[in-house]
């Protein structure tokens, strides 16, 4: 199953459940409150997913490691390498 199908499957499952409750498709005579809670659910989900995305990306950007020591180490090794390579006869 491709990722696309997985997603379509997941979305339609949730959609079907939502429709079931919101429009009471099976005539379960669910209490009115259930329907009231259910019908704006997709919007809530979307908004909270948006917030989650924002928060996650924001957090990860903020905590992204700055590898300063790695850059310094590399600079030093570059110097060392250049010297050694010159000795070995490399013409740059």
């Amino acid at each position: 199953m491709t990722k696309l199908l997985e997603w379509l499957f997941g979305v339609s499952l949730v959609g079907a459940l939502w429709a079931l409750v919101t429009f009471d498709l099976l005539d379960l005579s669910l209490p009115q409150t259930y329907r009231e809670v259910a019908w704006p659910m997709p919007l809530y989900l979307l908004v909270s997913f948006g917030c989650y995305s924002l928060a996650t990306v924001g957090y990860r950007v903020a905590t992204f490691n700055d590898c300063e020591e790695a850059a310094i180490e590399l600079q030093e090794q570059i110097k060392e390498a250049k010297e050694d390579l010159r000795k070995k006869g490399l013409k740059m």
Binding site: S53, L54, V57, G58, R60, V61, F64, N65, D66, C67, E68, A70, A71
Partner: peptide, 23 residues
């Protein structure tokens, strides 16, 4: 680059932010 001690050097905050805006 996204786990443990992994990371990047040479991306300033602006660059990271631009990247972050992509979503």
């Amino acid at each position: 680059r996204y786990r443990g001690n992994g990371g990047v050097y040479g991306w300033d905050l602006r660059r990271k932010l631009i990247r972050f805006h992509f979503l």
